[in-house]
Design a protein around this nucleic acid. Structure first.
Ligand SMILES: [Mn+2]
Ligand SMILES: [Mn+2]
Ligand SMILES: [Mn+2]
Ligand SMILES: [Mn+2]
Lengths: 221, 221
DNA sequence: ATACTTATTTAGTTTTATCTAAAAAATGTC
DNA sequence: GACATTTTTTAGATAAAACTAAATAAGTAT
């Protein structure tokens, strides 16, 4: 398998993501909107990726990753999340700053560098946003008993273990309200009319919009 | 000043290097051989760089960096050398392995990352090959009383402070013979017929070819 | 089944960065 | 100063990655 361009790596990552969100072959328009590009550009690229056996693509039917393609996706995701961890753990960046920078660092090729970085960070299992970091073989931890905060039962204590949105605006919003990975939350009440949730955290009550509570992942203790 | 492509950054670095080696405007062929590309490609690129006011270029007369261009070169060199230092100091790479990887890392854009890395490494003044690391403003240490080992007077003790060739083959050769930055060397004898040098280091005598001794920088104590 | 709408592909351009081959300018030699 | 050699530029092509506009296929509704 030869070298992938940055653009190819980005497409592969997007297909990997959409594949598990949509749970069916990834359409050209899905990819176009995810990649913030035009459908015609996507068609060009999927032909190339298919040529390289990274995806199975059939005209008008969308595409899905091959084994090779999935391996490539996991390699890039591994690098992305290791770099994010490095930036937060070693260089004291905030979790809202690192995604952008990691979008560039994830394309550095050296496998030895990736593995040394992994070791330097003590083989972290999760990145600063709670997402699992694949190991050298692409294996990663799958968590059990997880819910979105919006679905958590009332009065059941749970721990915040992840965020489903890595945008700086959302993460800064969480910072402002003292929500970070590892804290314990309990739903006190839920309001019918706007689907907002009253949660208890750090002894304080806080009202979270449906928008926010649907993007916070928790695990029941 | 807008964003530079990786290719543009690489050309600017090459021009910076050649400018001080040649000490006159950099010719198209000089650049072509340094960049391992064709003269016609260079002509295209220097037109673009000139358009962006990074260099002064006149047809048939070669080019030289503007203030802006020199600033860009120093920014890239700073990143390159900081990353090399990181790889050696923190990830235990050998000095012969890091140049290649840094060739990629030097193109990561975040200024904040560069400065945080600098801080994380404790503001190093030199990289693993003894080359000075420019600070945020492009300023760097200039050393005095330095010679190439091939020019060092007999029986004058000196310290190895740099290498003029970053190739893995040369650096591995130095490793093999116990030559590293910081060690003390003394020239015992010099042979007319092949210009080789007999040096004393770590109590042992060693014969170095003209090739090798011309690539080792030393400073008289 | 026909017609409308949406999704996708095709065709034709653009930009960057490269190449080869040929032309033109600069330089060196007698 | 004319001729030969070297250096550099121009012209024309190619490949990757984008775009716009137009054509075609698929899906949906009546
Ligand atoms: Mn990220
Ligand atoms: Mn992440
Ligand atoms: Mn280097
Ligand atoms: Mn170096």
């Amino acid at each position: 398998m030869d070298y992938l361009t940055q653009s190819e790596e980005n497409y592969i990552k997007a297909i990997y993501y959409l594949q598990k969100v949509l749970d069916k072959p990834v359409g050209t328009n899905d990819l176009a909107s995810r990649m913030d590009t035009k459908a015609s550009s996507v068609t060009d690229m999927v032909k190339r990726l298919s040529e390289k056996s990274l995806i199975i693509y059939e005209k008008y039917k969308g595409c899905e990753l091959t084994e090779t393609g999935e391996g490539a996706a996991l390699k890039t995701i591994r690098k992305h999340r290791l770099w994010e961890t490095f930036l937060v753990e070693k260089l004291n960046f905030g979790w809202e700053e690192v995604h952008e920078i990691a979008e560039q660092l994830e394309h550095i090729q050296s496998v030895k560098l990736t593995n040394r970085l992994d070791e330097f960070l003590d083989f972290p299992k999760f990145d600063p946003h709670g997402d699992p970091i694949p190991d050298q073989n692409g294996a990663f931890v799958l968590r059990e008993e997880t819910y979105k905060l919006i679905d958590l039962e009332v009065d059941v204590p749970a721990i915040v273990i992840g965020v489903a949105d890595n945008s700086a605006s959302f993460l800064k919003y969480l910072d402002k309200h003292g929500i970070q990975l590892g804290i314990t939350v309990k739903v006190k009440d839920r309001f019918e009319f706007d689907h907002s949730t009253e949660v208890l955290l750090n002894g304080k009550e806080l009202n979270l919009s449906a928008e926010a509570s649907s993007k916070i992942t928790v695990q029941v203790k």
